[in-house]
Design a protein around this nucleic acid. Structure first.
Lengths: 242, 242
DNA sequence: GACGATATACTTGTATACAAGTATAATAGT
DNA sequence: ACTATTATACTTGTATACAAGTATATCGTC
């Protein structure tokens, strides 16, 4: 394992968190970015001495990462599992599953307050782009989606979000950092896409929402269509009932 | 808090687990069953002395329960949140969301091996009923659904299952214990329902699956219809594409 | 050289110790 | 009688200590 002292994870995102949570964040992003290679066996003692903390917070961090399937706790050592292409697809499956569920609840509610909040966030994202503040942009991106999900007040959907969020967050941050160097123009596309989201929620127009979802997940080809398939069953029945 | 030494959670289910996990299971079922009332503030030290263990495993248990939204970790003490009617509905939302997703993946695969496994489980459930072994019946019920979910090899759906499973497990066990006293005939209905599941997977007939889901979730009225609604959006688009 | 037994250096799980912070209760001052 | 302040008894977070178990390596025997 690389013993570099440079922290990949933004410090300001976790300033108030406990050591254990902070370590989890740092280890997570190192694993996802490939900085810590999959297959590596992590030992509590080694990690403790490397990060110059005791085993207690290390244990906490490892438990967190294990609950996210990023590492596997075994009898002797925690082996790094990491993320495969397949895993990333699967995360997007889940996100899509959640977001479609949320949207359908949403259209039954008064969304004016939510729309205002989301508008604020998109404007902040705009400023972040302007000043090339990738971390802020990523942060607001995550907040944007979390705000939508939180708005339906569904504690178990929220629970799922909380379980997938850390990995999502890392993925987003890493991809944004890459974009800054390689595809800067992408940021505007992403911003526009978020504005489409807001529009879909404002007008409660499903067609627009579909477009937003498509644009948002189009880097994971075929996933949206896949979900349709997966939900065809209930659909079919629904039509029969008519 | 009741300091009774009687354990509500079946010991044999967690014989091999660590103390922390065991405590989490016991505390969870006590909270869900109302044995520990919501609003109670749990202290690590008190729990440690009550269960006669150190704070380490207690901390582990509390972390687990907090990740399930059963308790809320605050600055001073962990306050018991428990489950509301709303929470239970929401758990079923998630379960339905998962199971429909899984089923749609399933019908694309060769299910012969899975069907055999499920048949075995239903037969074991049958025996469990015969001998009025509620714990075994509940255990097999959970295994049944887990087996289905596991079969599509989707690690993130599995992750969601793992996060909701403990609460589901407790709910199932508690409701089965109640049934044994009040509505013994229910067991046969439940068994039949599981056989319908197997049939749906065997024949890959969506109509049968709908029926199975309906029967399984009918104690949570209106939920299935609700999900249809929630997925109407994607459906609509799909038809437009045709 | 090959194989088996023991020794050693690791691992995790749990218990205990200490430090920093917070709420409550008791006390002093008005 | 009431308010402000200090004292105390709690809380969690982290560090350390110890016990039980596991893999590896060393050593002795064949």
């Amino acid at each position: 394992m690389s013993t570099s002292n440079e922290y990949i994870y933004p410090i300001k995102w976790i300033a108030s968190a406990s050591t254990g949570v902070r370590l989890a964040c740092e280890l997570r992003i190192r694993i996802i970015s490939g900085n810590i290679q999959k297959g590596t066996v992590l030992s509590e003692n080694k990690l403790a001495s490397e990060f110059e903390v005791s085993r207690s917070p290390i244990r906490e961090a490892l438990k967190i990462l294990a609950s996210e399937n990023i590492i596997r706790l075994e009898r002797m050592g925690a082996v790094v599992v990491g993320l495969t292409e397949q895993d990333i697809k699967e995360i997007y499956d889940v996100r899509l599953l959640i977001e479609t569920f949320v949207y359908e609840r949403l259209v039954k509610l008064d969304t004016s307050k939510l729309v205002r909040e989301l508008s604020k966030i998109t404007e902040m994202m705009e400023i972040a782009i302007k000043y090339k503040d990738v971390e802020e942009f990523s942060y607001q991106d995550v907040v944007f989606h979390e705000t939508i999900i939180r708005s339906i007040n569904h504690s178990y959907i929220m629970l799922i979000w909380n379980n997938t969020k850390p990995v999502m967050e890392s993925l987003i941050l890493l991809s944004m950092r890459k974009r800054l160097e390689e595809k800067y123009e992408d940021f505007k596309r992403i911003l526009t896409n978020h504005q489409v989201y807001v529009e879909a929620i404002k007008t409660k127009d499903r067609d627009i929402m579909i477009r937003a979802l498509h644009q948002n997940f189009d880097n994971v080809q075929g996933k949206v269509d896949d979900l349709w398939m997966s939900q065809q069953m209930l659909t079919t029945e629904r039509e029969q009932k008519k």
